[in-house]
Amino acid sequence: MEVVCSNLTKTYPDGNEALRGVDLRIQDGLFGLLGPNGAGKTTLMQILTLLLQPTDGTLIIGGYDSRKHPDKIREMLGYLPQFFGFFPELTAREFLDYLGCLRGIRGKTLKNQVDEVLSWVRLQEVRHKKLKTFSGGMLRRVGIAQALLGNPKLIIVDEPTAGLDPEERVNFRNLLFELGQDRIVVLSTHIVKDIEETCTNMALLLDGRIRFHGSPFSFVQAAKGETWEFYGTSEDMEELSKRSNLVSVREDEKGICFRVVAPSAPRESARIVTPNLEDAYVRFLEIQKYAA
């Protein structure tokens, strides 16, 4: 199974160029799509789920061209959108039953699959409760359950952990990791931690273009030797907070600790630390900003 995007372009009727020639090749495993808000992630997700047609370029999923065989592609696709809508008056079981029906699953097969996905997302005990009584995390799990119906080979999740509490976020990440073992899971997010913890491959989308495509490890390696930590005062904070290369600030017993990405030491007392994906991401955005 493989997803191949070639020169995908999307221009909206108002002239907004959301995608400008995206080339991507995605294979089995968890694939992260990272980018700031407005980078074009949701547009790319909607093209991958065939909700939107690209203005130009080709999309081939599992050997099928999206323009010629949309139904074949939809059969092997599960989708959890950014704003997951549900029918509040239905119970979790009824909701999955309804969507399973729309997927063309019938009779006993449908009943068995609904039970299976409910136990997979650990909602078996609340299956007869109405969706309007569910918490945000439970609703996200219902969302992933509906995406799993029909055992799709490609699952697309758009900003799945937004608005979840830390425990739910960890649970959800683990669930996605399990799913990615035997299929393609495309995870679009602007939360760097989600990609760092789960993905084997990633792409960085900026201004509608793919700026990086590879493993998170190789992306992080680029920030090696350019991530610094030093202690400073509250005056330093005022000055540094105006700059975009400040990654984080924390306070401990020694004082206020600043973490910045820069090609050279920002202070004499600064020491090099091991970078993480967030450092690499901030460094990348900084470079792009100066290049522009």
Binding site: P81, F86, L99
Partner: peptide, 12 residues
Amino acid sequence: RDTLEILWSQPM
């Protein structure tokens, strides 16, 4: 209700 995306991504 944002259910349109889910419905339209189904094979139906």
